[in-house]
Amino acid sequence: MFRKLVISVLIIAVLAATLAGWLFFTANTAFSEKSKYLYIRTGHATWPEVLQTFRDSNLVNNTAMLDLLATRLDVPEKIKAGRYELKNGMSLMDITRLLRNGTQAPVKLIITKLRTKENLAGFLGRKMEIDSMDVVAYFADSLQPFGFDSNTVIAMIYPNTYTFFWNASLGTIFDKFYGEYKKVWTDARRDEARKLGLTPLQAYTLASIVEEETQALSEKDTIASVYLNRLHKGMRLQADPTVKFALKDFTLKRIYEKHTEVESPYNTYRNTGLPPGPICTPSLQTLDAVLQPAQTNYFYFVAKSDFSGHHVFSETFDQHVKVANDFRNAQNVQQAIRAAKDSAAKHK
């Protein structure tokens, strides 16, 4: 009788161990996507809160068994804030080890074009744990050691892919931005800027204007030459993109005289010289086009009337007036055609 009891207990134990092994080591994710992310906020890395997130987000099929396994492996004492990638098909053991080891999934910040410091703050607020308002406060209080301020902070940011942990501090983020800035501003680039009579900030600011003027890489060094010629002669730049920036209206397709009257240090129709900071993050190709400009006698340029995205360059104002009128007439015709199409569509 005793022997039968022992055998029965052993069988039950084996079955229980088999069931536990099946629950712990087989796929237990409850979503169909390739992966999902578990976000554990700083100050909320307590196991009850994390477990509730698993329940609320329906990340696993069996939160009770996850709780049991995690408790046995000391996860509640070791868990850390961060961003964790849960891949479809992971077992409870895989997930528990991930959390126990604090193996975060890094965030890739892909910066292409940003225009304003508010854009930058919002971008970081969306991608990282940081609140965008904390980023704005950081601009006001913490940029001095890097040699920047809230007007020039964009000049510290270069288009690239930056990798961080989701809960990285602002100090860590801007240290990396500044590290990239120092890589860009080699002795050779600094020397090129100096020969043009520009500081790195001024060269970057001019590059930001050129970046907004054209997407045609072949024209960037020529457009840069126009603005440099104007600067050296003491003429106002009269750059339309600076007016858009001053108005904070980047949807404007056509700049009228009423737009150029806006009072702003960024309005180069009213102010001589470069604006106090960049109006976007230019590409390195654009920066190098500014540092290695074409040698021209051009002082004016206007978009071609075929709307190809290219420009006509002129040495004299009289030459410029003629081609500028051609472009305005083409714009008027285009607007009239668009208005006729809109009117016809409304009356259908």
Rank of each mutant, 00 (worst) to 15 (best):
F24N: 15
F245G: 11
D306N: 07
R97I: 09
N62R: 05
P159R: 04
V136L: 01
K87F: 07
R190A: 08
F313R: 14
I154K: 14
T53W: 01
K34Y: 08
N297W: 01
L287C: 08
L5Y: 08
Q52G: 14
P76L: 05
R328V: 09
E212A: 13
V210H: 15
H44P: 01
I95W: 00
R254S: 06
P145Y: 05
T260L: 05
K127G: 02
A81M: 00
D141V: 12
M235E: 14
E77W: 04
Y266H: 08
T268N: 15
T296Q: 03
N229D: 11
K220C: 08
L206N: 10
T286H: 03
S8E: 10
T286A: 04
H310D: 09
N271M: 06
S142W: 07
M235N: 11
K34H: 05
S150Y: 04
R115M: 04
D175L: 15
S225D: 09
A20E: 00
E212S: 14
L109V: 05
L19Q: 02
M235P: 01
L66P: 06
S314G: 12
D187T: 03
Y269S: 10
L274G: 13
K113E: 11
A27W: 04
E211N: 09
N167K: 12
G125A: 01
